[in-house]
Design a protein around this nucleic acid. Structure first.
Lengths: 187, 187
DNA sequence: TCTTGATATGCAACTAGTTTCATAGCATGA
DNA sequence: TCATGCTATGAAACTAGTTGCATATCAAGA
């Protein structure tokens, strides 16, 4: 296993927090985990299958009524050992793919119509982030109502969520700066 | 060309700002562009070759004394047209791969020794970001000393740099929160 | 002279991630 | 009954990104 390859590890952490099916994991990656690690369901099912073959996770068939059966995965001892090993490796620098920043610098090579279109896009993008921060704040109220009464795992989940909130707020303030700058070019 | 596939476009923007060799592009990706789009030199040379074959960029052999020859690339009309088309496509959400956040949540499933090791890693990580924000601030002073006397391209580069600075400051504040939380678990 | 280090370019093999497509159960409402 | 939509899993093909290697020029210093 290479250092920095973390989808396996993100899945292990998520399954340790709460066992679940591939489908459930995919939804968690769309919400909570997806804040800092994205993955599609295809990728998750593939990696889950590999981890099962390697004995890192076990699966249990669950009959459900009212909906299709599912396979609930749990972390086995070798998976937990692999996670511990990985946890003690040096942290890789975060990698960012920020398309909007490329487009903003690219706007210098487009005309007024292109910059007007970019303003519209930035406003839409801003609305998305506005919605995200509200979702995070609602989740924070729901999951961590009493900051004094949390166990270790909850405190760690909470500090990561606070990071997500701080990130979203920073983005919103920066997008206001971007919009002001873009409007300023027209004057 | 798929939407959201932006290495080509990041290279086009960088070459429009300033023509240069693959090597120079790789250094820019380590510094300025790399703030929001990472790429290794191997990837850059490969994509550059493809863009040259597609007529998006042209290359000119430059004899240098005191160092090896290089091939300076410039954007050709089809490349500029491709960039304009891409600029007007909807902006994809930024994708984040934040390994540290996974490890913080993972620390709930490690022992006290593991958490102590994580604290050391977070401190090292914090020092890296501290150095980065200083580098950005120095670059800001150097490249944008007089905010009133900038052309459109410089203003757009400046607002992206301000985003980088805001991001780094947010990260530093959050890492302080993380360290406090990790220390709090031991008490 | 020999080593180190920066500049400069590139191939080959591998791993990770995305996109498209396919299947199927079951609930709800038109 | 039929369409829609959510739950649930997965294959196959493709594209992007990483890692390891290879090569070469030239400067500076041991």
């Amino acid at each position: 296993m290479m250092a920095g390859v973390a989808l396996e590890h993100a899945i292990l952490v998520s399954l340790l927090e709460q066992p679940g099916s591939g489908y459930e994991l995919a939804r968690r990656f769309d919400r909570s985990i997806g804040r800092f690690w994205t993955a599609t369901h295809q990728q998750i099912y593939r990696v889950l299958k590999r981890m099962e073959a390697d004995g890192w996770v076990t699966a249990e068939e669950i009959d459900q009524d009212g909906r299709p059966d599912k396979r609930r995965h749990s972390v086995a001892a070798p998976g937990r050992a692999a996670l511990t090993t990985w946890l003690r490796e040096p942290v890789q620098p975060e990698s960012v793919r920020h398309e909007l920043a490329v487009k903003i610098r690219g706007a210098a090579f487009d005309d007024a119509a292109g910059r007007a279109a970019l303003i519209v896009e930035v406003e839409r993008y801003r609305a998305d982030h506005e919605a995200t921060v509200h979702r995070y704040l609602t989740g924070e109220q729901r999951d961590f109502p009493d900051a004094g009464a949390l166990d270790a795992g909850q405190r760690l989940q909470h500090v990561v969520l606070r990071g997500g909130i701080a990130y979203e707020r920073m983005v919103l303030a920066w997008l206001d700066d971007v919009l002001e700058t873009l409007h300023g070019l027209g004057r």
